[in-house]
Structures are given as C-alpha cells and as structure tokens.
Amino acid sequence: MAILVTSETRLVVQGITGREGTFHTLKNRDYGTKVVAGVTPGKGGETVDGIPVFDTVAQAVAATGANTSMVFVPPRFAADAIYEAADAGVALIVCITEGIPAHDMLAVYSYLAPRGIRLLGPNCPGALSPGIANVGIIPAQVFAPGGIGLVSRSGTLTYQIGGELAQLGLGNSTIVGIGGDPVIGTSFIDALTLFQADPQTEIIVMVGEIGGNEEEKAADHVLAHVTKPVFGYIAGRTAPPGKTMGHAGAIISGSSGTAAAKVAALEERGVRVGSNPTEVARMVAERAGR
C-alpha cells in the first residue's frame, strides 16, 4: 500500500529543466515513478528525455492528469510555484527547495491547510515507497520494501537509520522526509496518521531534531491515536542554544526546543527513543523479531 507516493502517483515536476530538476526527475522515472510532465515557464513544447514540458501547471494537469507535483525552483520563486500547483488542482505538492522565507511559508500554509491540499516540505528530501515510486532526492538503493514506516525532519539521517535497518534485514513501507524548516506542510502527526491507517506499515520510526515542539505534539498524538509500535530518535542533544544547526528550523530558542525535552515527552508517552541511530535500528529489529 504505502503512503503519499504510490502506484497512483502521476508526477509533474516544476523546474524540470534546471540541472538538479532534470537529474532527479530522471532518477525518479528510472525507479518506476510515473513522471508525466514538467513545467518551466517559457519552455512549453520542449521535452526532457521524452517528458513533455509545459509553460504552466494548469496546462500540464489538463494534458496529463498529473496529481502530484515536485517543486524544484529557487527559493524566491518557490512560494509562487506552490500556489500555482494548488490552483491547478494538484492534491500533493512535494517541495524540495531549501531557503524559502518563513513568512512566505506561513502564508502558503494558511492558504493550503483549510483546502485540504497536502504539502510535503519544504526543505525536504521527498517521499519514497520502496519498489513502487520515488518522488524527491532520497537515494533509493539504500532501501528495500518492508513494514517499517519512517518519518524524519532530516534527509541524510533518514538514510543513516534506513541503512542500519536494511543491514538488519528490515525494509520500509514509505520513507517520508517532512523537512527541516520552521514551517512545513506535513507534520509528524500527519505522517503518523497516514502510517497508522496503512496496512503495510507495522512499526513506525520517527526521527526528530531540536527546535519547535512538533515532536512533543506528536508524542501526545501517539498516546491517544496510534496503536502500532513507535520508536524515536532525536538529533541535537549537544547543540548549543541560539544557534541554527544547518536546518533553518533546528534552533533552541531560550529553553524551548531542546532534545532532552523531546526525548522526555516521547518516552513518557510510550515511545522508546534510541540514543543513537544504531541503537534505534536495533530496538526496531528486536521488536520486529529479527
């Protein structure tokens, strides 16, 4: 089954003709994702390795029935690109772009949320359902199909934990990168809800980091609504307060957003948290009987 990206996914790539856009589009297609269109204003009528390019998302959707968009445009144009996809009726928008102003994202969020349009990211690696489809930049070769749902604010840390799980013989239903920015479209709670409802997912791993309180909110949600076993990992235990640790959202403000507070919130609500990626993988393997 998997979540978010499935065999039903029909992908349009906004910014398909850029270097990164082209590279990852073709990798996603090679993996089996149905990439039906690309959009670059002014380049309508061209093709990228056989994929038709349109001037607008509306044209692309009308011509190809695209239902998912991947945004690969520079930060100052990214909010506009997301609005364009939403306006064209795309149901899932995956925004890879890093560096979008927070005020822009707040306005985007306020527009999308009441309309039920799902945004993944920004500043995220996308989502991969092993063996089915890949939308984004996650290196698919690390992951195999299986029953572990993985949701994370970080890209490479997800590869690390996924790699450790794979070595222990465990595969994934879907790997979801929700993004490292302060304002993101899909929260831990959203991903947990989808995994709870997904028959393929047996165990859920959530990978958080310092900054904000989304992990704490997710902990409450797990206690109240998630019956599948959930394991956690939080990065940034040694991060100093007031410093942005790479991700725009990874910052301890005053005394809020610390790793210790997140670990405590999760453990108090029955989520076992590993102290390092290797330990998390081992805990999951034990539970899965491997």
């Binding site: 970080s154 490479t156 990978v207 991060a239 790479g246 991700h247």
Partner: peptide, 14 residues
C-alpha cells in the same frame, strides 16, 4: 546534511 551532522556531534559526545 544537518540531521546527520547533529547526530554525529551527539555520537562523538556519547
């Protein structure tokens, strides 16, 4: 990657 680097700091500390 920010997450992996943060995690690396933690593991070195650990």
């Amino acid at each position: 990657g920010a997450g992996l680097v943060m995690s690396t700091l933690d593991v070195v500390d650990e």
